[in-house]
Amino acid sequence: MVVSKDEIMEIRASDHVVLVRQAVRKWSTELGFGLVDQTKIITAASELARNTLDYGGGGTVRLEAVESGGRRGLRLIFEDQGPGIVDLEKALTDGYTTGKGMGMGLSGSKRLVNEFDIVSRVGEGTRVTITRWK
């Protein structure tokens, strides 16, 4: 997989979630995503950015325009140094929530992208990587 372009954005406040959404919209448009695909990755980014903020106590997102086997895609890596997730399996279950969301954040975003990976260590932080191919 080749990364042709990348950028790191801070997620420290509610306004930053909006900025992340706008950046993802811009990048997915540039990559030539269809309207539905664009909407899916923007929505997933919004969910995950909010998770980073609400549960991770803030962090960063790295945007990457990637290419692999002739396909182009957008990869987003959300990272925080928060408390981490104790029970990953449970966190990925529909309707499970510890905060003010609807418990669809993680499990829902997973359905909106082609690739989903989550690494979390209690006391150290969480990293979620998602990719949506064109």
């Binding site: 909407t39 929505t43 969301g101 609807m102 669809m104």
Partner: peptide, 9 residues
């Protein structure tokens, strides 16, 4: 152009 679970809620 998007509704996430935050707006849904």
């Amino acid at each position: 152009d998007m509704v996430d679970s935050f707006i849904g809620r």
